[in-house]
Each structure stands twice: as C-alpha cells, then as structure tokens.
Amino acid sequence: MPTTPSTTRPPRLRRMPPAAAFLLAVTAAAWWPSTVWATPEATASAALQDKQVQGNARLRVWGFEVYDASLWALPGFDAGRFENQRFGLELAYLRDFKGADIAERSIGEMKDLAPIEPAQATRWTQAMSSLFPDVKRGDRITGVHVPGSGARFYLNGRLLGEVADDAFSRLFFGIWLSPKTSQPRMRDTLIQGITGAARTP
C-alpha cells in the first residue's frame, strides 16, 4: 500500500498506520457491505428533527393495552414505499415487558412477512436482545429507519444503539407498515392522516 499521506483522507486515517487502516476497511466491508457510514444522532429529537407525527394508534391484544404507536415522518410520506424514506416509529409502552420478549415477538412478526434464514434470524434476535432493555409502563422506544443504513433505537429519547443492516430495518418496520402486517387496522390508523396513503385491502 502507498505510504504517502493524502490530504483527502479523514484525520483519523492520516494518523493511522496504513496496515491498520486497510484492516479496518476490510473488516467494515465484511460486516456492513451495504451500510451508509454515518454517526447515529444522540437523541431521537435530533434524528427526527424535520419530521412530524403523521398518525397515532393503540395496540390491544386480547383486550390488554400494549402500547401507543406514533409515526414520525415528513408530510406526504408514502407508506407503500416506506423502506425508501427516513422516518421514526415511537412506541409508548402501557405495560411492563422484558427486552428479550420484545426481541422474540419482533422476530416472529418479521418471519411472518418474509422468509428469514435461521442463522440470520438468530443474529437479528441477538442484536435486538442486546439493544432492547426491559421496559416499564411509560417508557418509550423510538426506532428510526435510515434507508441504506439500518435501524437506530432510542429509549426515552436517548440513543440505545443501531442494527446496521438495511434488510433488517425494512422487515422490522414492516411489522407496522407492510401491507402484510398482522395488525392491518393499526397500520391504517397510523397512516390515515397522510394524503394519498395506501390502505390495507
């Protein structure tokens, strides 16, 4: 590799030994081949600074109130092409839940939307389990879909971390926004205020 400093390299790479910089680049490419490199915002409000609440819906299961969901997006958000737009989904919990249970329920819903290889399902479940905390009534988890990058998660407005995988993010947010969702009425309620939004048949 050339050892002549380049003025176009980021400052950190100019000070990094060439061999170390090469190893870092190879490792990053192996783990996140389609990731758009960007530092996650530290707060949900920063991540959604130009977005507005487009819809609200409450999830009830067998008569139990689970959470209130709020969709944060730009006016004109296209629910039929949600995977191509940046948006946020905030869940305000109405009951206590274990983080591991949230992860397991999420992967189950994702499998209902599209086939997932067992190894991939295991990796995604582990990623969610490591990010999602146990929640109590009143806690809010906000997920932000970043097209081409992945999903970023916030607890009560503060960054928890991210799953830097665009395929994961599309399926995860499809739990609420895909026409194949298990909760079509909730989807319709979330997007009902959006002009021209596609409704679930």
Rank of each mutant, 00 (worst) to 15 (best):
R170A: 14
K180R: 12
A114N: 06
W72Y: 14
D166M: 10
L91P: 00
I175Y: 00
D166S: 11
F153L: 10
F87T: 02
P33F: 09
D68C: 10
F132P: 00
R60P: 04
I107Y: 02
T200H: 09
P10W: 07
Q85G: 09
D101H: 04
S149L: 08
W31C: 14
G76L: 13
V61T: 06
T181S: 05
A151C: 11
D112T: 09
L59E: 01
F77Y: 07
L160F: 00
A151R: 01
D134G: 05
R158A: 14
S130C: 12
S6V: 09
R158W: 09
P118W: 02
P115K: 08
P179W: 05
R105Y: 04
E90R: 12
L113Q: 01
N84E: 15
P179H: 03
A47T: 00
W32N: 09
G143K: 01
F173D: 03
N56V: 15
I194F: 03
W124G: 03
Y67A: 08
M16S: 00
R14A: 13
L74A: 10
D165I: 06
A19I: 08
G174Q: 07
T3G: 11
A73P: 01
E117F: 11
A100E: 12
F82P: 00
L159Y: 08
A114D: 06
P115N: 06
F168S: 00
A114V: 07
R81H: 13
S45A: 15
A46T: 09
D96T: 09
F77P: 02
D50W: 12
D68Y: 07
P2I: 12
T4K: 14
R158V: 10
R170P: 08
S45F: 06
I175S: 02
